[in-house]
Design a protein around this nucleic acid. Sequence first.
DNA 1: GCCAACGTTGGC
DNA 2: GCCAACGTTGGC
Length: 154
Amino acid sequence: MSHWLMKSEPGTFSIDTLAALPKQTTAWDGVRNYQARNMLRDSMKIGDTAFFYYSGCEVPGIAGIVRVVKEGYADKTAFDPKHHHFDAASNPRDPRWFVVDVKLVRKFKRLIALEELRKHAGDALADLAVLRRGNRLSVTPVSEAEWEFVLTLE
DNA sequence: GCCAACGTTGGC
DNA sequence: GCCAACGTTGGC
């Protein structure tokens, strides 16, 4: 089983938004980057867990945990001309963009801020993608050791 | 295939 | 709002 980190802007979709949904499950749509797409399509498996990360907000950081409940399939928002994430180059016969379904596992009692993760950039989290300068990937892998370490920070 | 221009991301 | 980093586009 693998671990991941998935970014979302809480102003658009927060962990509380997810918690309020029926079955607390959503398609993780809108990813328009090939590297991230490949992970959604090929690498993320049912049972994998991911950190729900807040970006583009006042206090970026990890808000909780979600679990993959459905593996990669076409991102339908790419087919809808009225949708913000529409992409004319993607169509149902040959989809360019993919989603996985994730379900809420739990919201952390408190946000583990990026600032706090950074304190361990020299040791336990030295290779954590989200700490690297200029990192913009919205889906990144997290190692087992990194996963366990972050959980001790909660 | 190169690379400049441009758009987006995301922390600060 | 600023700016660094990076991906994509398009002219050549």
